[in-house]
């Protein structure tokens, strides 16, 4: 008589495939992606819509690489590595497409708080200004509809991460979706109703995955508005949430002995980077300004 064993105790050996990346053979675990291979090879790859805790949607196209034999470039984040693939990550075609993607984004989106993108834009020589001042921008009002977070869609690159986090990659609430089409596509509730009227449960998992600060905690927004957001002075301490017995790891971002933001590590087996409204926002009582102690 036997019960089912923990797979980790059975000792399954992990099979690998070998692919060539920039003329170096790289082993990737079976089921892994070309991006995993790039990481293993120590090649830094720009990504925008990719996150280790979300299913790759490969929409931003900034991680494209050249696969020999393929008519078009392929997204490294989602393409499974296959034995014998020959990949180039720094060919002229790759550099050109990455540059153009960054340039396209820069020409229509406010990337002022997307530090990563800006350094990649510099790296690839993207010049968003060559589309001229008349180039159409997103042009949306900042949505401030509650005390927990804001939505500044001028900064939105439509990476779908928030939609995924709200949907079946984590939260399964589906309060937001992509609406409309083409350049007019927006992240939106139904009929763009205010967030508090929507199904939103304010877990903030959308904010946590936003790569450009289009979604921002209200605390951060307020401090930035007051020119008092100082990331270089902030400490980040990992602890455990007190609101139930699940044991979610919290990263407390603290500035001047004041909590300014709460996140969770993507690689923790309990949360995978996700939290609920209490863990994400329920720390106000800790603040020295309002404690009874």
């Amino acid at each position: 008589m036997t019960g089912t064993m923990n797979p980790s105790e059975v000792g399954v050996s992990i099979r690998t495939v070998t692919i060539s990346i920039d003329d170096v053979d790289v082993k990737v675990p079976e089921g892994g992606t070309v991006l995993d291979g790039c990481k293993a090879a120590g090649i830094d790859t720009p990504t925008l819509c990719y996150s280790e805790n979300l299913t790759p949607v490969n929409v931003c196209r900034v991680c494209v690489v050249e696969l020999e034999g393929s008519r078009t470039l392929i997204p490294s984040c989602s393409r499974p590595a296959e034995e014998g693939m020959v990949i180039h990550t720094d060919s002229g075609r790759v550099r050109h497409s990455r540059k153009m993607v960054l340039e396209f984004l820069g020409s229509g989106v406010d990337l002022s708080q997307a530090d990563d993108m800006n350094s990649w834009s510099e790296h690839y020589g993207a010049d968003p200004d060559r589309y001229g001042p008349a180039a159409e921008k997103i042009n949306e009002e900042v949505k401030i509809q509650d005390d927990l977070y804001i939505r500044d869609y001028d900064k939105c690159v439509l990476c779908y991460k928030c939609v995924e986090a709200c949907g079946d990659d984590a939260q399964h609430t589906f309060a937001i979706s992509v609406s409309g089409r083409g350049f007019a596509a927006r992240i939106s509730t139904e009929f763009d109703i205010a967030l508090p009227d929507s199904a939103c449960v304010y877990c903030g998992n959308c904010v946590a995955v936003c790569p450009t600060n289009a979604l921002q905690f209200k605390t951060e927004w307020d401090l930035r508005e007051a020119a008092n957001w100082k990331p270089e002075e902030q400490t980040v301490t990992t602890t455990v949430c007190s609101y139930c017995g699940v044991g979610c790891n919290l990263e407390m971002h603290v500035q001047d002995n004041t909590i300014v933001k709460v996140t969770s590590p993507n690689d923790h087996s309990v949360t995978n980077g996700n939290l609920c409204i209490k863990g994400r926002f329920g720390w106000q009582y800790v603040q020295p300004t309002i404690t009874t102690r």
Binding site: V57, N58, V59, C60, R61, V62, S97, M100, V101, F104, L105, S107, G108, Y131, A135, E136, V157, L158, Y160, V178, G180, R181, G182, F183, A184, A185
Partner: peptide, 16 residues
């Protein structure tokens, strides 16, 4: 008008 808007090259490229 017909770009679905999903990927950047098409969504923005078509506008430009």
């Amino acid at each position: 008008n017909e770009s679905c808007g999903q990927c950047v090259p098409c969504r923005v490229g078509a506008v430009r």
